[in-house]
Design a protein around this nucleic acid. Structure first.
Length: 267
DNA sequence: CCCGTAACGGTTGAG
DNA sequence: CACTCAACCGTTACG
């Protein structure tokens, strides 16, 4: 292995003198050129030397092209099959525009209910949260800045903000920059985050909490049927009734059947 | 010399 | 938010 250029991630030089980034696919143009040259009848070893891409890579690309007809990396999916497709992403954005304080679990329920997703490709709560955090809120805050300031100035700031969000995820928590302009735009985002609409936490009556406590005494681990029964009698959505082993609800006695909204206020 | 491929260290997106 | 997992990336080295 050649580690002479850079420890990880950055460009490296292969045995032919070609530049590559470990783990990342070759540029689209290079892939296209490989296929074009092969179509012209040029031998893989010659393509390899000409483009300074190793013969192993040429061999892989050409055999994949013969099998699938595709020159794109990924075979349609990288890692686990993608559940947050552009369509799902757009739908979630739409739901949030219609109902700004909507919780992730509600988004998930609605995707299922409205047949946007099936049980097989329904995104997890963590995926939905991540999407909202990294993409939708960034887009919302950009739009917020765009509408509230002078257009030319705010466009600059929005671009910087977008760049900043990207750099932040790219650098994975490393120090961003000393540039004052960039930090100013970040504080705008933080300001937006702090003041964005947040839906009121659901409030439950003592009666509801006491009933739950009693139910728990009878049955510490309510199944779906039990929870549906509680939904009927208490008027609390079944998905909000969960098993919690050690937590306590304020003003009640060691309740272990709890409401996610009571304990986990934000998503 | 050519080429297919296993092994490797890496990236990416989902859970 | 840090971690694991699975599928993929291109290079290297072997046969």
């Amino acid at each position: 292995m050649d580690f002479t250029v850079s420890p990880s991630g950055a460009g490296r030089i292969n045995q032919l003198g070609g530049l590559y980034i470990n783990g990342k696919p070759l540029p689209k143009e290079t892939r296209e050129e490989i296929i074009d040259l092969a179509r012209l009848g040029i031998r893989p070893c010659d393509i390899s030397r000409r483009l300074k891409v190793t013969h192993g890579c040429i061999s892989k690309l050409l055999s994949k092209y013969k099998k699938t007809g595709s020159i794109n990396p990924g075979g349609g999916s990288i890692g686990r099959p993608r559940v947050i497709t552009p369509r799902v992403e757009e739908t979630i954005g739409q739901y949030r525009r219609e109902q700004p304080g909507i919780f992730s679990w509600e988004l998930r329920d609605r995707l299922l209910r409205e047949n946007e997703c099936s049980r097989e490709n329904l995104p997890s709560l963590s995926s939905i949260s991540r999407l909202i955090k990294h993409k939708i809120i960034a887009a919302d805050s950009t739009a917020c800045l765009m509408s509230s300031h002078d257009t030319a100035q705010s466009q600059n700031r929005a671009l910087i903000l977008e760049d900043n969000v990207q750099s932040r995820s790219d650098l994975n928590g490393k120090d961003l920059t000393n540039d004052n302009g960039r930090n100013a735009s970040l504080s705008n985002k933080e300001h937006f985050m702090a003041h964005r609409k947040r839906r009121q936490r659901a409030k439950y009556t003592m009666h509801q909490l006491n009933q739950l406590e009693q139910e728990f005494e009878k049955n510490p681990y309510p199944n779906a049927w039990d929870r549906e029964g509680l939904e009927q009698t208490l008027g609390i959505h079944e998905t909000r009734i969960q098993v919690r082993d050690t937590l306590e609800i304020t003003n009640t006695i060691s309740a272990r059947v709890t409401l996610e909204n009571v304990l986990l206020c934000f998503d």
